[in-house]
Design a binder for these strands. Structure first.
Lengths: 333, 333
DNA sequence: TTGAAAGCGCTAACAT
DNA sequence: ATGTTAGCGCTTTCAA
C-alpha cells in the first residue's frame, strides 16, 4: 500500500459527500446528519485520515501554535515553566514554539512580521520589555500575549503575576522570627518591577522594627549573589540574616560564606525567593518563598488561549497568585 | 492607516511584473533580470512585505520548522542544548518546536500523522526509543531525525554521540592518579547504550589494575545518586574513589557523604560525567568529564538540516565528539 | 442538511 | 527572462 497522503477530497469521494460536508464534520460548526457523520467517520478511520494542519492554517489564518519568547532559556525558571505551558497548550490543541531572541530584536517590526507570517496565534514572554512602537504594532496585528515573571509590569495588563510584596514580607518576618537582629536585602535589578516589589516588602517589614534598612542591588545572577554578599560582609560584618531577591543569588552567596568561614544558619540565616529545585540540592538547603511555577505556566497559557479564541473580549485581567514560605536548613536554628 | 496584509500579488502588480517573477525573486532559484529585481526589491521595502510562511509551506510541503522531542524537558541537560539547537536552526531559517511527549506516544502512528500534517521537516530526540513500526513509518513519510545523548544507539545511524568509553577511562584513570586504591562505579541504566559505554570504560581501566570491579546500577537521577551511594558505603566502607555515570548522581551523592561524615575529596574522591553547570555550584565543586554540549546541539542541528535539504543522501553518518576532563575540588588532593 | 466554487498566499510547471 | 495557470489541502460563503 503506497503512502500517498489522503486528503479531504479522498474522504469526500469515498463517503459519497462533498468536501464541504467533510469540512463541516471536521470543524463541527454546522449541522451534518448523523448518518453522513457516521459514514465520514468510518472512512476517515479506514484511511487513517489526519487533516493537514498547514492547509487549515492557511484557510483559517491561524496556526494553532503559540510561542514562548525569551532572551535566555537557560534561566533556571524556564524548564518547569515550559513544561506546564506545553502541557496546557497541547491539551488545547496548540503547539509550542520556542523563540530565543534578545530584547533588541523584539523591537524590530520585521521580527513581528515574520511572526505573523507564520500565523503564530499568540505568545508568552517572561523577561523582556517591548517598546511603545512594538506594542502598537502587535496591537494592530492583533497578536495577543501575556507577561509573566520579570516581564510583568504594572502599566500593562494581561499578565500572570505572583505576590512579590507579600512574599518578601513573609521572608523577612521569618528571619525576624528565628531571631535575626540585623537583616539585609540583596535586591534584584531596580529596573524590574518584581524586584521593586520584593524590595518594598523587605522595607515594609523592616520599617516596623528598630533596624535600619541595608540593601545592595544585585542582578539575579549566581555571580552577583556571591559578589554582593562579599561586599555586604565587608560593610556590615555583623549582619545575621539576609533576604535574597531570588534563589540563584542566595545559592551564589554560599560561596562567599564559605570564604568568610561564616556558617549558615548558625552565623547568618538566609532566605531566597522563587522555589527553584536547586535550593534543595545545595548544602545547606535554602529556605525560600516558593512561587507556584506550574500554576503560573498553566494560568498564563489558559489566559493566552482564551484571548486567542475570544478576541472580542478586549481587556485582559491580571492574575495574582499566592506564594508560600518553605522553611529549610538555611533558617533552621 | 489600515493594516491590510500585503501579498505577493500586491508586490507583483505594483512592480509591474507577474507573481511568478516575484516568487522567483523570493526564492532566488531562477534568473530574473537585475532591473526587475531592483524594482521588486524597492516595492517590497516600500510595502514592508514579508512572504507568508504558511502559504509557502502549503505550496512547498515544508514548514521550515524542526522539533525537539523529549519526555522531560526538566532534564538539566536540556536548556543549554536547546539553546544551541535553536541558534543554528534560526540561523538556517528554521523554527524550533518543543514537543514534550512520552516514549509511549512516540510509537503511536497518529502522533506522527499529526507531526506530518504540520509538515515538520525533521526532529532531534535526546532520550526516547522508537520501535520498529514507528521507525518504518517515519521512513515511509521521509521524516528525518537525529539522535543525541541517551537516544544514541549503535544499531542506528544519524546520531551525534560523545566518546563515552574514553571519557569513562579518563575519569577512572584520574581517580587512580590521585591515589585512589578502591574505585567503584555508579552506572546509568543498563538499558541505555551511553551508560553501557561508560561502564565499559570503567571496567577497562579497572581490569588493568589489581582492583576488583565494584558497580552499582543507578538511573541517572539525583535521588539514585544518593541512594546508591548509601548502599555502596554500607557494602564497601573502604571505597575511596567513585566514578558516577553522570553529574546529577554525583551531586546527589554529596548528601550521602554528609550523612556519613565522609569528606570529599579527603576520604573519597568523586567524578561525574556531563559537565552540567550545577557541578560548579555545589560544594565541593565536582570534577567531571565535560561533554561539548553546544557542539552536540550545533552538530545535530546541522546534520538534521542537511538531511532535510538533501534527502537523496540516504545514509547518515554518526558523529563522535570528544570529551574532556575537568578537574575540580572533588578530586583535588 | 448539503454542494459548488471561490478563496487563503505562494510555488512550479509549462509556455512564450 | 517573464507570464499563465494549475495546484497545495482546507474553509466558507452562497445557493439549493
Amino acid at each position: 500500500m503506497s503512502r500517498k497522503k489522503v486528503t479531504i477530497r479522498d474522504i469526500a469521494r469515498e463517503s459519497g459527500v462533498s468536501v464541504a460536508t467533510v469540512s463541516r464534520y471536521l470543524n463541527k460548526n454546522s449541522y451534518t446528519s448523523p448518518e453522513t457523520e457516521k459514514k465520514i467517520q468510518k472512512v476517515m478511520e479506514r484511511f487513517q485520515y489526519t487533516p493537514n494542519a498547514i492547509a487549515r492554517g492557511l484557510a483559517k489564518q491561524k496556526s494553532n501554535t503559540i510561542a514562548f519568547v525569551t532572551p535566555d532559556i537557560t534561566n533556571p525558571f524556564f524548564p518547569e515553566l515550559v513544561n506546564s505551558i506545553e502541557k496546557v497548550a497541547k491539551a488545547k490543541g496548540y503547539s509550542l514554539l520556542l523563540i530565543n531572541t534578545n530584547e533588541q530584536e523584539l523591537q524590530n517590526l520585521d521580527f513581528w512580521n515574520h511572526f505573523q507570517s507564520k500565523y503564530i496565534d499568540g505568545f508568552i514572554m517572561a523577561e523582556s520589555e517591548l517598546n511603545e512602537k512594538a506594542r502598537r504594532y502587535l496591537d494592530e496585528m492583533e497578536i495577543p500575549f501575556v507577561r509573566i515573571d520579570r516581564a510583568v509590569h504594572p502599566e500593562h495588563s494581561n499578565s500572570v503575576h505572583v505576590d512579590n510584596f507579600e512574599g518578601a514580607r513573609l521572608a523577612v518576618r521569618h528571619l525576624l522570627e528565628i531571631g535575626c537582629k540585623k537583616v539585609a536585602h540583596i535586591s534584584g535589578p531596580n529596573s524590574l518591577y518584581p524586584a521593586q516589589e520584593r524590595l518594598m516588602g523587605y522595607q515594609n517589614v523592616i520599617s516596623n522594627t528598630k533596624m535600619t534598612s541595608i540593601v545592595l542591588e544585585g542582578d539575579f545572577t549566581l555571580e552577583s549573589g556571591t559578589a554582593q554578599t562579599e561586599k555586604l560582609l565587608q560593610e556590615h560584618p555583623d549582619v545575621d540574616g539576609i533576604f535574597y531577591a531570588n534563589d540563584l543569588m542566595a545559592i551564589g552567596a554560599l560561596k562567599a560564606f564559605r570564604a568568610h568561614q561564616k556558617s549558615v544558619p548558625e552565623d547568618i540565616a538566609i532566605m531566597g525567593f522563587d522555589g527553584i529545585r536547586l535550593t534543595e540540592i545545595v548544602h545547606p538547603e535554602i529556605s525560600t518563598i516558593k512561587q507556584p511555577i506550574d500554576k503560573i505556566g498553566e494560568t498564563a497559557t489558559n489566559q493566552l488561549i482564551h484571548f486567542i479564541e475570544n478576541p472580542d473580549e478586549v481587556c485582559g485581567e491580571n492574575v495574582l497568585l499566592k506564594v508560600e514560605l518553605v522553611e529549610r536548613e538555611s533558617t533552621r536554628r
